[in-house]
């Protein structure tokens, strides 16, 4: 009797979640509504069964998420009977910070990074789970599973704690915290295969469907509501598209795809020649941008 690769990944993630629940006084799970969050939540339900996960979910709502995401979020929380906290950076709303006029970098900093820091401080969370994976991006591939943050939420990539075996250092002083990445060792393909194996619900936006699209800056943007101002020279097309990652709709590019089911997505992944984050505006914004954002406290 030996374990499959997915079972190994699953066991590792569950072990990590239990370590957090057993050693921190106020953990929280960042719930971003994407496929990784869906998997992470599914693992949490398994890790503590028959008890419920002993921590709330936190969604940082920029107010620019796809409508289907918000609907999925609320439905999930109700169906599973989980405690969902939603936080929006009110300063950003007051200053009318938005993805069109403010620029992706400033917008992300205000509505995601600062919003997250506010929420963590407000509730005094000492550990926060994130769905980040090492295969996503170069600086993520360098990050520990238990990633220490000082009282200003700063990540110091040149001075990470050694992380030996599965013996984690879970100790922090007051107002310091740890970001925990239980999916560190999963790849995008692993995530989809697991979703397929476990029948995990995901936001329908991941599956191909005809959607209203404009082409802008090399991205296929979906018109999710009338806040997306269609420019004179732009043409709205009905295209068969899906999303590989989900974020704020004005910053998340769709891909043309006919994969309408999870097995078809997996099939597609075996031939695709671009990376997952390619559809995200914020990453190409500046050189080494992910590391910089992470150092400032972004997930």
């Amino acid at each position: 009797m030996t374990m499959t690769y997915l079972q190994k990944l699953e066991a590792e993630s569950i072990h990590i979640m239990r370590e957090v629940a057993a050693t921190f006084s106020r953990p929280v799970m960042l719930y971003s509504i994407g496929k990784d969050s869906s998997v992470m939540l599914h693992l949490a339900l398994k890790a503590f069964y028959p008890a419920k996960p002993p921590f709330p979910l936190l969604h940082i709502d920029t107010t620019w998420k796809f409508r289907e995401m918000i609907a999925f979020r609320d439905k999930t929380a109700i169906e599973l009977g989980l405690n969902l906290l939603v936080h929006t950076n009110q300063d950003g709303i007051d200053q009318n910070v938005n993805p069109f006029d403010s620029g992706a970098t400033a917008y992300t900093h205000m509505m995601k990074t600062l919003a997250l820091r506010q929420a963590l401080d407000q509730y005094g969370f000492d550990a926060a789970f994130g769905g980040g994976r090492r295969d996503e991006e170069k600086s993520r591939s360098k990050e520990r599973i238990f990633s220490f943050r000082d009282s200003k939420h700063t990540w110091d990539p040149k001075n990470q704690r050694p992380e030996m075996w599965r013996t984690y250092n879970t100790r922090v002083n007051r107002s310091e915290s740890i970001r925990v990445f239980p999916l560190s060792n999963w790849t995008e393909l692993d995530v989809w295969q697991y979703i397929n194996q476990e029948n995990i619900p995901v936001v329908p936006l991941y599956l191909a469907q005809r959607r209203p699209i404009v082409r802008r800056d090399g991205m296929l943007l979906m018109i999710d509501d009338d806040r997306l101002r269609v420019r004179q020279e732009e043409r709205v097309e009905e295209l068969l598209v899906r999303f590989r990652t989900l974020g704020c709709y004005p910053l998340t590019g769709a891909i043309e795809s006919s994969a309408r089911t999870v097995p078809e997505i997996i099939q597609e992944m075996l031939t695709v020649r671009t990376s997952e984050r390619q559809g995200r505006a914020i990453d190409s914004d500046e050189e080494a941008s992910m590391e910089k954002k992470k150092r400032e406290g972004y997930f």
Partner: peptide
């Protein structure tokens, strides 16, 4: 440069911390 993902690593041309690749 495919693996040395930290800014400091790329600037100095050395590896500082471990990178995990699959």
């Amino acid at each position: 440069l495919l693996v040395d993902g930290l800014e400091a690593e790329r600037e100095q041309g050395i590896t500082i911390d471990v990178a995990y690749r699959f």
